[in-house]
Amino acid sequence: MSAMEAKARVTPARHTSLGLSDQDVLDMYYYIALARALDERMWVLQRAGKAMFVISGPGHEGCQVAAVWPMDRTRDWLVPFYRSIAACLVKGMSPTDLLLGLFARANDPSSGGRQMPGHYGHPGVKILSTSSPVGTQYPHAAGIAYAAKIRKTGEVTMTAIGEGGTSQGDVHEALNWAGVYKLPIIFVVENNAYAISVPLHKQVAGGSVAARATGYGFPGVVADGSDVLECYRVAKEAYDRAKRGDGPTLLEFKVPRLGSHSSDDQQERYRTKEEIEADRTRDPLRVFGAYLDGVGLLTEAKRTDVAARIKREIDEATDAADRAPSPDPASAARYVFFEKD
């Protein structure tokens, strides 16, 4: 027994003291890895000419899984943004659901091939789609939370955005609204330090989005997006606070940006090689994997098992989505107005 193993046995593991079981953290790892693998598959499909456009969030998966983890996945609401692959998977969308959207198939649950990929929505699992202009989802989410509060349903709403989107007026209006009405809502800001090419210092005056929450009368908390357990800890606190009726929380997760803005972008045009490399050391998949390895949960055999399961699932999802039919041309004019039978 090595010294580290001995220490792990006498000191309770971090996740245990947060109330997470071994199975919980292994499941969280699975979702982070699944989201990453699905993200990579989307890019391969786009580069192979099977899809026109991809927008995703490599580096954001850890905080997303951690943020959604405390939620009641059948009762609570998620109002995501276009990097929310991992959040949507945890909330209940399947890899096939996401790929149907990528391929603009008739049975794409987000939009039936009407909206661009990455604009995830699935009313069945209480995910509401957002629009391309960033920030507009924040007021939507505040409205949903308001409805939940006055109906006393106990539902909690979570919405997410990048730090760039927080420059929009909509965000201010939503935060103010939620603060005034003490809504059961969690505002997530996934701060990867770039809005396409515009860096944080040109985007966020004062450098901190979380600090702004004080002005709206509720807590703003910063967490390292690579530290999945710390993200979970602050998300759980925010969730419990919302549940208790104590109002909103703003969570700012500092995440690495491991990819370009979208398939139409090359981040090498405006970021240095050194900076991109430095971000890779903060990859939550790697950092969390190392933690699980350290506490003896993610053995080499286990890691291989998870990888094999994910590959199989994504291969099957790709085939299913690829085989699915495109929208029926006869449906082209539909869904504009309410359609009576």
Binding site: G113, R114, S326
Partner: peptide
């Protein structure tokens, strides 16, 4: 053009 929001699928978009 077609009296509908612009669809994403290429076959529908061409019809619009």
């Amino acid at each position: 053009g077609a009296d509908a929001p612009m669809p994403y699928a290429r076959n529908l978009e061409l019809l619009a």
